[in-house]
Simulated assay, not measured.
Amino acid sequence: MKLDTEKVIEKYKDRIFAIGLSILKDPDDAEDVVQETFLKYHTYKKDFESKEHIQSWLYKVAINKAKDIQRKFWRRKQVSIEDYMATIPFDTPQDEELFQAVMALPSKYSIVIHLYYYEDYSIKEIAQQLKLNEGNVKVRLSRARQLLKEQLKENWNDEE
């Protein structure tokens, strides 16, 4: 037995998000848990015994994904953005403002902006690094640019 992925997502997405949030205490990381859990379900080839089996499997995968995120080196070694910003020499106040705006983006957008503009990776290289397809990287870049445009526009309008 395997239910349609869309139906499973609709039924369990809030519960999976709550599991991720309770373990990670970060909504962006919890959203990653949701996405990774349902991606694994969608690509899982074996059948399940029942709806209850699907539910318990999803919860187990979500917990394991959250724990994987929690164990990652970069998460354990995080430094506050203020401490990090104090170590960076900016040429202009606008450079600092742009960097802060990029860092305020959800992590799935800030990472593609950082890799593309600050590290000069191509879209293809970013896709390989993040294990995404190139179309997904392009969408994330586009959405990130739009969010930055809105954020920076608000800041500039406030200054006038």
Rank of each mutant, 00 (worst) to 15 (best):
K72H: 11
N136S: 14
D95Q: 14
S50P: 07
F90V: 02
R145W: 00
V8C: 08
A62E: 05
I9Y: 13
D14G: 10
Y59C: 04
R71F: 13
V61L: 10
G135F: 08
K13F: 14
K51F: 15
K65F: 06
I126P: 02
I16C: 02
E52K: 00
V33E: 03
H53K: 06
K65W: 04
I16N: 01
I63M: 11
D28S: 08
A144E: 06
Y117S: 08
S22H: 13
A86V: 00
F73L: 12
L58S: 00
V139E: 04
A62V: 11
P106W: 03
E134N: 06
S80T: 11
K138A: 14
I111D: 10
Q129Y: 12
H42F: 14
Y84V: 01
T5L: 14
E150L: 09
L148M: 12
K11L: 15
I88L: 04
T37P: 02
I54Y: 03
K77E: 12
T87P: 00
L24N: 03
K149S: 13
L3K: 01
D68N: 12
K149Y: 12
K72E: 13
Q129N: 10
P106Q: 08
V137W: 02
I23R: 10
Y116V: 02
A86M: 02
G135R: 02
H114R: 10
A18L: 15
P27Q: 11
S110I: 00
G20F: 09
D26L: 08
D91M: 11
P27S: 15
L141S: 08
K67I: 15
N136G: 14
I23N: 04
N133H: 03
S80I: 00
Q35I: 14
T43D: 01
Y116T: 06
L147P: 02
I19Y: 07
A104W: 03
K51E: 15
D120H: 12
Y12R: 00
K124V: 12
K65G: 01
D4W: 00
K65P: 03
A101M: 07
Y41K: 02
K11F: 13
E119V: 01
K51V: 15
E6K: 08
L148P: 08
S50A: 10
D47V: 07
Q94N: 10
Q146C: 12
N157T: 11
S80L: 01
V61H: 01
R75T: 04
L3I: 13
Q94L: 08
Q129K: 04
N157H: 12
F99W: 11
K77H: 14
I54A: 05
E154P: 04
V137E: 02
K13E: 09
D29E: 13
A62N: 05
D47P: 03
K153M: 04
R15S: 06
S142W: 06
I113P: 01
N133D: 13
T87M: 05
Y118W: 08
N133W: 01
D68H: 09
E154C: 00
V137I: 14
T43C: 09
I126L: 09
D68E: 12
K138S: 13
N64P: 03
Y12T: 01
V112A: 05
